[in-house]
């Protein structure tokens, strides 16, 4: 059992390494200088009520771009990694008996979930949530569809089209930012509009919509691949 004790010892050591950090944290009374700046003129700059969204989309837009690329990478790596030839796909999955409750509930719930997802990413700049959360909700909707009726097939062509177009649009908006506004991914290419209304905060809603679409399609694509790989030999 030497290994286990060694690992425990290591954990204690790591705890010791991290302890000064933990111990130095007194909880802050007021915002850091950066946070204060965002609080003061976050709304004027980006016009978005939800400060987190303004930070995520405009101030640190490159992170979000990186963020999307990571999901795109994960999806494409998994797609060519778990992909398999047509011939070794089994005829059909053994179908577990789908209970009555699940099918009826899913018929009611799925449109609601999709509506919720769209709502979340459309006014990401007002209410908490945004592209990622909306996309995730849509993906959970597709997940429910996979669970409820077994022979649900996801058409890869549609997924690819939506995903690619939203990705390309996102990059185009970013590039537009350079010409029409301050810099790459600047949202002031459209009028900031008046705070708290749907059409405010410049390009943020547009970005978030496409982002939501992209994340939603990608995650459902990932789920689709996992489902398809179920019935591989």
């Amino acid at each position: 059992m030497g290994k286990k004790t060694l690992i425990v010892l290591l954990m204690v050591a790591m705890a010791a390494v991290l302890y000064p950090l933990y111990e130095s944290y007194q909880g802050s009374e007021q915002l850091t200088e950066l946070g204060q700046y965002y609080a003061d003129n976050g709304v004027q700059d980006t016009g978005a009520a939800n400060l987190v969204t303004s930070v995520v989309v405009t101030y640190r837009g490159l992170d979000t771009l990186g963020e999307v690329t990571i999901l795109f990478l994960a999806a494409s790596v998994i797609s060519f990694f778990l992909s398999f030839k047509k011939e070794d796909r089994k005829e059909s999955r053994e179908i577990r008996n789908i209970t009555e409750i699940l099918t009826t509930a899913s018929q009611v719930l799925i449109p609601m979930i999709y509506m919720l997802g769209v709502y979340i990413f459309v006014n990401g700049h007002l209410t908490p949530g945004g592209g990622f959360q909306g996309g995730a909700v849509i993906a959970s909707g597709t997940l429910l569809m996979f669970l409820s009726n077994p022979d649900f097939k996801l058409s890869h062509k549609v997924i690819h089209y939506v995903e690619s177009t939203s990705g390309v649009v996102f990059v185009l908006i970013g590039v537009l930012g350079i010409f029409m506004a301050g810099g790459f991914l600047d949202n002031r290419i459209l009028g900031l509009g008046e705070v708290n209304t749907l059409f405010s905060a410049g390009a943020i809603p547009v970005i978030y919509t496409f982002l939501g679409l992209k994340v939603g399609t990608e995650l459902s694509n990932v789920l689709g691949i996992f489902v398809e790989s179920q019935n591989e030999q």
């Binding site: 969204t53 908490p128 990622f132 959360q133 995730a136 993906a139 997940l143 789920l223």
Partner: peptide, 14 residues
């Protein structure tokens, strides 16, 4: 709230 929603939907569900 944003983080909570993300964590809930992505972290636990997916």
């Amino acid at each position: 709230p944003d983080v909570a929603m993300t964590e809930a939907s992505i972290g636990s569900a997916l």
